[in-house]
Design a binder for these strands. Structure first.
Lengths: 342, 342
DNA sequence: GCCTTGGATGGTAGCGCTACCATTTGTCTG
DNA sequence: CAGACAAATGGTAGCGCTACCATCCAAGGC
């Protein structure tokens, strides 16, 4: 029985049903749910009872329409399978799990155009905040962010000119640290191997280059890159290319840990001793770096924390107290291991 | 200047603005955007021009409220960083990128309670479809799915009693295949190593057990598991435990590839020859399995395709032609490699 | 030539909620 | 004890869109 209400909607309880049952006005129910402090203890209890009994759940669409603000965090990342972004996203989810905010992720596939499109889509929802990876937005994407009318956090790297707020680290410094470490360890012919050279990879390469030039050891033939997405198997292939091009190679800074692992495996296969003949440094310090044999030196990045800090900043801004420090640099940390210990 | 419209909303163009500019009724604009076929060529062009000029983007919240249906796919997965689910999610995103549907992901953290909570939250939005990982919903979660009023696809595994539709494969068969392969290769003391024993892992274990029992070689001491989340380093540790418990171990079926990689590294470290002294089989066949040294035999699963097929089924159901075949079994495939070639 | 039919278009009335502005009541001040 | 004020509650009017039901007009049938 009971085809309760109108043509659509399927007859779920509305705020009016709750109000009727609790014997109060609809607006009081609304307040009791959103700002309990502004409703008397008595009514609050009555309303809660009615909510429980009816199984009332507010309709977020109606709420968003009426308040011109959706309880949604828009998150834009270039890849969903890259462990690095997955960790950031996990940090975001974990920080938001006890809040009323929902999360909507967009995958830009490393494309500026796709980023613009998604920003358009996200913006139409009037999100509570936007978190975007990277600092190299197209001019039009940047304009969309500036006019989004909500807090914006750029993550993954730091730069001089935030749209609003930033959490990340310097990829240039990370790359330089890695190269300097190899130099200190006594390696001389140090290659750079990188796949999918996005802007952050480019800056790591720039850091590597700076260190090599400072040592007077830079040679463009030491660099091996490809636009293809990164993978362990690709790391192996690129290393073989690099070695073919430059047989005297004695070290490599890998743009990420997958590549580094691929390099390590190829060394095993080719019976190249790591670290004696070849030194290897990775980037990100994934868990497996510490376990591999030999274990691999890597530049640790604080990916999960980038996610949690970004949310914390956005939440603060939503609450009206934008943090003084609008740029947070979480830094990187070189973790020395067997792969460069000679 | 121009504080265009009402108190809220920030003055973005609405459908009424477009209608005015195009000299038509609002409803015609709405139709032109959603069902272009029902509007005459002429008006359609006029309306499109007005849309472009004003930069009009429909408000999805208003749309959802008015039509009692949000253009959202709700996706529930137990983990965001586990590569397996990341691949499924990527398949979902890629299949939906040209559609008007947005995606909302929920992370259940392998918790039935959390799954119920998220289902509640998602349901309140009246999503266009729900995609959930696994088939072991709690009774109350299952009820929520049955009453969701939209297509539901359970993914990752197949079972006898779908809520609505299913795409996946049999973990039991996968586990059995792996164990049988090790047996055929001549291994006898074959261990099972698994972390985070979710229901799918349990079924892989059951498959392993069935094969071992059929061969008369089952021994509970061969099994090493932990509720801790899986990782490469954990694989190493568990293998050491397994070996301590059962020093005559000559093979391992690893619950997933991360574990398998950890086992391989520990074999290197302990100078155990793979595949001569220890045979290793992984599960999922991640890219790195083919590259490692030695390469690792693994049970390939079709994760990306699970995502694309799930979307295809849901889309068909939304369009009104629910597929005849409500359960799709994508199967598994044993990829034989060096780690079991003796 | 009148009536039917169907395609194209528009008007009206909400969808379920909250912003804004009362209104009511109780408490405090001088 | 009047007046001021704050706290608690409610009514009204939308938010921007689409479902539903007209209305209109041209084409076709008898």
């Amino acid at each position: 029985m009971s085809k309760p209400r109108s043509r659509r909607g399927g007859g779920r309880p509305t705020i009016a049903d709750v109000a009727r049952k609790a014997g109060v006005g609809a607006i009081t129910v609304s307040r009791a749910l959103r700002e309990p402090g502004r409703v008397s203890e008595d009514l609050r209890r009555q309303i809660q009872a009615a909510v429980d009994e009816l199984g009332y759940v507010p309709d977020p669409n109606a709420r968003a329409l009426a308040s011109a603000r959706a309880e949604v965090f828009g998150v834009l990342v270039p890849s969903l399978t890259n462990n690095v972004f997955a960790e950031v996203v996990r940090g975001i989810y974990d920080s938001l799990s006890d809040s009323p905010f929902r999360i909507q992720i967009g995958n830009t596939h490393y494309s500026g155009l796709e980023e613009e499109r998604l920003l358009q889509v996200f913006g139409s929802q009037r999100p509570a905040a936007l978190i975007v990876a990277g600092i190299d937005q197209t001019p039009s994407a940047r304009r969309l962010l500036e006019n989004a009318g909500c807090p914006v956090v750029q993550v993954m790297e730091t730069g001089p000119d935030p749209v609003d707020m930033m959490v990340g680290f310097s990829h240039l410094n990370g790359g330089r640290t890695a190269a300097e470490h190899l130099l200190e360890a006594g390696y001389r012919k140090i290659g750079f191997i990188g796949a999918r050279m996005d802007p952050r990879s480019q800056r790591r390469l720039a850091g590597y280059r700076a260190a090599m030039e400072a040592a007077g050891l830079f040679d463009p033939r030491l660099i091996t890159t490809t636009p293809v997405p990164s993978s362990v198997s690709l790391g192996r292939e690129l290393f073989r290319d690099a070695l073919a091009k430059m047989p005297t190679l004695d070290g490599v800074f890998c743009n990420n840990d997958d590549i580094a692992l691929g390099v390590l495996f190829e060394c095993h296969r080719a019976s190249l001793d790591v670290p004696k003949q070849i030194g290897i440094v990775g980037f990100n310090d994934l868990d497996m770096m510490q376990v591999s044999f030999p274990s691999i030196t890597s530049v640790r990045t604080h990916r999960y924390e980038i996610g949690t800090r970004a949310v914390a900043m956005a939440l603060a801004a939503i609450a009206g107290n934008r943090p003084d420090q609008r740029i947070i640099d979480l830094g990187t940390e070189l973790i020395r291991r067997e792969s460069t210990a000679r």
